Amino acid sequence: DETGKFLVLALYDYQEKSPREVTMKKGDILTLLNSTNKDWWKVEVNGRQGFVPAAYVKFL
């Protein structure tokens, strides 16, 4: 149950560059965990948590 969690859509592919980031593919649906930083949002994708560039995702 994803109640209270926001979902975001990956607009572009992103390859993680550090262990704190996660890789996503364009079209992936991600669970948004934290968006307090304007540049990097914490998400969960494929069972992994990490950061992606905020400009690469949008709210569903």
Rank of each mutant, 00 (worst) to 15 (best):
10 A>Y: 02
8 V>E: 00
13 D>W: 03
36 T>H: 12
1 D>C: 13
21 E>R: 04
55 A>T: 13
27 G>V: 01
23 T>C: 05
36 T>M: 11
45 V>P: 00
57 V>T: 04
54 A>N: 03
38 K>N: 11
57 V>G: 01
32 L>Y: 04
41 W>A: 04
36 T>R: 11
8 V>F: 07
20 R>N: 14
23 T>H: 04
3 T>K: 13
14 Y>S: 01
25 K>G: 04
59 F>P: 13
12 Y>W: 12
10 A>M: 02
33 L>P: 00
25 K>H: 10
43 V>A: 01
1 D>Y: 07
39 D>Y: 15
47 G>M: 05
5 K>A: 12
12 Y>L: 10
20 R>F: 15
37 N>G: 11
50 G>T: 02
59 F>K: 11
60 L>N: 05
26 K>C: 06
56 Y>H: 07
51 F>P: 00
6 F>T: 14
38 K>M: 09
5 K>G: 11
52 V>N: 00
45 V>Y: 11
33 L>A: 02
54 A>T: 05
13 D>V: 02
3 T>Q: 13
18 S>W: 06
48 R>Q: 08
2 E>I: 15
1 D>E: 13
7 L>V: 09
51 F>G: 01
20 R>H: 15
12 Y>R: 14
24 M>L: 09
47 G>P: 01
48 R>M: 07
55 A>P: 08
45 V>E: 03
3 T>E: 13
34 N>G: 07
11 L>Y: 04
4 G>L: 12
4 G>V: 15
30 L>I: 09
21 E>Q: 11
4 G>W: 12
7 L>N: 07
53 P>H: 02
10 A>S: 05
50 G>M: 04
20 R>M: 13
9 L>F: 11
59 F>M: 14
14 Y>G: 01
11 L>H: 04
54 A>P: 04
7 L>H: 10
42 K>F: 15
6 F>V: 15
10 A>K: 01
34 N>S: 13
41 W>S: 03
7 L>M: 12
51 F>A: 02
15 Q>M: 13
27 G>S: 03
18 S>Q: 08
11 L>R: 07
51 F>R: 03
20 R>P: 05
8 V>T: 04
48 R>S: 06
45 V>F: 14
55 A>H: 12
40 W>H: 03
1 D>H: 15
49 Q>T: 13
46 N>E: 11
24 M>T: 03
9 L>V: 15
51 F>M: 08
35 S>C: 14
59 F>G: 06
55 A>L: 10
19 P>Q: 10
20 R>L: 15
43 V>W: 00
19 P>G: 09
37 N>L: 09
24 M>P: 00
51 F>W: 14
47 G>C: 06
27 G>A: 03
22 V>W: 04
36 T>V: 10
32 L>N: 00
49 Q>M: 10
32 L>C: 08
29 I>P: 02
35 S>P: 07
2 E>P: 14
54 A>E: 03
35 S>M: 14
60 L>C: 10
53 P>K: 03
21 E>S: 06
49 Q>D: 06
40 W>M: 06
14 Y>P: 01
18 S>N: 12
4 G>Y: 10
49 Q>V: 14
41 W>K: 02
43 V>R: 00
44 E>I: 08
6 F>H: 14
12 Y>V: 12
59 F>I: 15
9 L>H: 05
7 L>A: 06
52 V>P: 00
34 N>L: 08
16 E>Q: 14
53 P>C: 03
32 L>W: 03
36 T>Q: 13
26 K>H: 06
36 T>S: 15
16 E>N: 07
54 A>W: 02
13 D>L: 02
9 L>S: 06
24 M>V: 10
16 E>I: 05
47 G>Q: 06
59 F>D: 06
50 G>W: 02
39 D>S: 11
7 L>F: 15
28 D>K: 03
30 L>N: 01
12 Y>D: 08
4 G>N: 13
25 K>F: 11
49 Q>N: 08
53 P>Y: 02
50 G>D: 00
45 V>L: 15
54 A>C: 06
32 L>I: 07
18 S>T: 12
51 F>L: 09
3 T>P: 13
22 V>M: 10
15 Q>Y: 15
48 R>V: 08
28 D>L: 04
1 D>M: 13
47 G>D: 07
12 Y>K: 11
54 A>V: 05
36 T>A: 12
34 N>W: 07
33 L>F: 04
42 K>V: 13
49 Q>I: 15
25 K>M: 10
19 P>L: 09
56 Y>R: 05
43 V>N: 00
6 F>D: 09
23 T>A: 07
19 P>N: 10
7 L>W: 12
46 N>A: 10
60 L>T: 08
43 V>S: 00
38 K>D: 11
25 K>R: 14
14 Y>F: 08
35 S>E: 06
24 M>C: 06
17 K>V: 09
5 K>W: 10
5 K>C: 11
56 Y>I: 06
40 W>A: 02
10 A>T: 03
28 D>T: 07
26 K>M: 08
30 L>F: 05
54 A>G: 04
31 T>Y: 12
13 D>R: 02
46 N>R: 12
45 V>K: 13
15 Q>I: 14
55 A>Q: 11
3 T>W: 13
48 R>A: 07
53 P>E: 01
8 V>I: 09
13 D>C: 05
37 N>Q: 09
41 W>I: 08
19 P>F: 09
2 E>L: 12
11 L>P: 00
56 Y>L: 11
39 D>A: 11
6 F>L: 13
4 G>T: 14
15 Q>L: 13
55 A>E: 11
57 V>Y: 01
5 K>I: 13
40 W>S: 03
36 T>P: 04
45 V>C: 10
60 L>V: 12
24 M>Y: 02
20 R>V: 12
1 D>K: 08
55 A>R: 14
6 F>Y: 13
51 F>S: 03
19 P>M: 09
41 W>E: 00
55 A>V: 10
56 Y>C: 08
12 Y>T: 09
32 L>P: 00
22 V>G: 02
2 E>F: 06
14 Y>E: 01
9 L>P: 00
53 P>M: 03
53 P>F: 03
24 M>Q: 01
41 W>R: 02
31 T>G: 06
23 T>Y: 04
14 Y>C: 02
12 Y>N: 09
27 G>P: 00
12 Y>G: 06
55 A>D: 09
52 V>W: 01
1 D>V: 14
3 T>D: 13
20 R>K: 13
29 I>M: 07
19 P>W: 08
10 A>L: 02
54 A>S: 13
26 K>L: 05
56 Y>S: 10
15 Q>W: 11
49 Q>H: 08
1 D>L: 13
28 D>R: 02
9 L>C: 09
59 F>T: 09
24 M>H: 01
57 V>L: 15
35 S>H: 10
15 Q>V: 15
1 D>A: 14
53 P>R: 03
10 A>N: 01
48 R>T: 07
53 P>A: 02
2 E>S: 14
35 S>T: 10
26 K>T: 07
26 K>R: 12
51 F>N: 03
44 E>A: 09
40 W>V: 03
9 L>G: 03
16 E>H: 08
40 W>D: 01
34 N>Y: 07
59 F>A: 10
47 G>S: 06
37 N>R: 09
11 L>D: 02
21 E>M: 05
57 V>C: 10
60 L>G: 05
1 D>W: 08
13 D>T: 05
14 Y>I: 01
15 Q>A: 13
22 V>N: 04
37 N>T: 06
7 L>P: 04
44 E>L: 08
58 K>E: 11
19 P>H: 10
54 A>Y: 03
47 G>L: 04
36 T>Y: 11
58 K>M: 15
49 Q>E: 09
46 N>M: 09
18 S>I: 04
30 L>A: 09
1 D>R: 06
10 A>E: 00
19 P>R: 08
13 D>M: 03
44 E>F: 06
35 S>Q: 11
11 L>A: 07
59 F>Q: 10
14 Y>L: 01
55 A>F: 09
12 Y>P: 00
58 K>D: 08
56 Y>M: 11
22 V>I: 15
47 G>E: 06
47 G>K: 06
11 L>K: 08
42 K>E: 14
51 F>C: 09
11 L>C: 08
27 G>K: 02
20 R>D: 14
11 L>E: 05
30 L>Y: 09
25 K>E: 06
43 V>K: 00
24 M>I: 15
34 N>R: 07
8 V>M: 10
33 L>N: 02
40 W>R: 03
39 D>I: 15
6 F>S: 11
47 G>A: 06
19 P>Y: 09
6 F>C: 15
60 L>P: 05
41 W>Y: 11
22 V>D: 00
48 R>D: 04
41 W>C: 05
25 K>T: 09
56 Y>D: 03
27 G>D: 06
